[in-house]
Design a protein around this nucleic acid. Structure first.
Lengths: 272, 272
DNA sequence: AGAAGGACCAGTGGTCCGTA
DNA sequence: AGAAGGACCAGTGGTCCGTA
């Protein structure tokens, strides 16, 4: 599994035909081996299924991503499995790969039904990215190259090359602060999930609601959100989202304006 | 001195006329106050001199840099002071600002004579960059923005805006490993300077020679050159130069090839 | 020739907005 | 409408090479 891993770091090919390198990467099953991966890739059957698709489609691909739909969770079936197989959803004639199923608010331990993904799966994606980062780091160290400490573009590229096509930068960046709450206060995160599920709120509303408890955590720890991220082993590899940083700053400013501290105007110290 | 510092971080102006902001920055004396600055800017007289030049030249500037030659060490005179004043390299009719005087190999404490700069001055530039970084960090913290841990493009831009036009990225990156040796083993660094001065070697030769003792230091500390840089408070803010990283890697590889360790082929551990 | 540094370039962090 | 992600963009790290 470590041989094609080296190829994966080299320049991305632009050929319209699927290249040998990609087939090898597909065979590795994404190089991660968590319980989720086994469950979600649907074992060996789906793999062969997808390989056939890829070959069948190879002359009509439209983009360089079109030939990589293995491990595709959008193709996976928890609900209307065989119905799906007959529609263009699974056959995917257009050449563009299917999008991932949208997330829904689930309780801890709950598996999403229908064409949906749950939040445990979302958080699992962050763990997978961490594993890809560790692999990239090991390769870099072996080669004596610069070693990334964060999940960078390079890591996303590596994940994609390794077959984890369902991982992409905009998605991971979008939910980082949700994952941060999960890491820093799992109890609070779980409670929020249960509350928002019960109220029937959508993912966007839950996502927005994750900011507030994080700002509260920051307020208790001297407002240094970077330090808070860096102190947590699983969170430290993620960039602090701009909006979270801004919220912490805004909240700190408004508090130190309203509650002037005896120390004078220069101090941003807390009133306790 | 902290008010125009905020302006300095904003977008660089492209006007052909010198703007008010630049005049203010000039007045601050580059915001650093070490003994070197005083010595090298030639006190107040030169400042007025340069201000006149700038005003006199303002209608014939060719580039956006042309109006910023204050603190210009290339204009400073240790040797042929008044002769220089009559020539075009102080009057600077072309509109392009003068280059810095080239470095020569000097002993510790030795001031370069003639149109040359010494190595103590070179190392002082690294200290100045560190001060600029600290200022950029303080501003970022105050604003709740991302806070750089290294000397980035932003810091070089800030230094230039602050009037330190003699600081630039290619130069600083070029000599980083020389500064690293100075930080990590000042005795060895001093000895090397004396030896190369005595032999009459040029700066390029001295610069090349700085790599070897650094690789030796790395070999004694487990080859992790990043860790070595990061462990030193003044060095940690500089990126490890590519070539130094490569030399450490190459040396480690060749040693572990020649001296096979009982532990087996996987080990990169040292034979002691 | 030896050296300083403007300016370029490939690949980054960040996220918008055309898409489904 | 709510959401996933291709693709763009400003500014980065890195250093070459036209300049003096």
């Amino acid at each position: 599994t470590t041989t094609h891993v080296l190829d994966a770091l080299s320049q991305e090919g632009l050929s319209e035909e699927p290249v040998q390198q990609e087939k090898e990467a597909a065979g590795s099953g994404g190089t991660t081996t968590g319980a989720w991966d086994v469950a979600l890739t649907g074992g060996g059957r789906k793999h062969h299924h997808n390989h056939q698709h890829r070959r069948r489609k190879s002359y009509k691909v439209r983009s360089k991503m079109a030939s990589m739909e293995h491990l595709q969770h959008g193709d996976d079936d928890y609900d209307d499995d065989e119905t799906e197989g007959a529609e263009d959803d699974d056959v995917n004639c257009g050449g563009e790969r299917q999008r991932e199923h949208p997330f829904i608010v689930t309780e801890p331990g709950e598996v999403a039904r229908g064409k949906k993904n749950g939040l445990d799966y979302l958080f699992h994606l962050y763990e997978q990215c961490r594993e890809f980062l560790i692999q990239v780091q090991n390769i870099a160290k072996e080669r004596g190259e610069k070693c990334p400490t964060k999940v960078t573009n390079q890591v996303f590229r590596y994940a994609k090359k390794s077959g984890a096509t369902y991982i992409n930068k905009p998605k991971m960046r979008h939910y980082v602060h949700c994952y941060a709450l999960h890491c820093l206060d799992e109890e609070a995160s779980n409670a929020l999930r249960r509350a928002f599920k019960e109220r029937g709120e959508n993912v966007g509303a839950w996502r927005q609601a994750c900011y507030k408890p994080l700002v509260a955590i920051a307020s208790r720890q001297g407002w240094d959100i970077d330090a808070i991220f860096n102190a947590h082993p699983r969170l430290s590899i993620w960039y602090v989202p701009t909006k979270l940083r801004q919220l912490c700053h805004a909240e700190r400013s408004s508090i130190s304006t309203n509650c002037v501290v005896p120390g004078g105007p220069s101090g941003h110290q807390l009133p306790f």
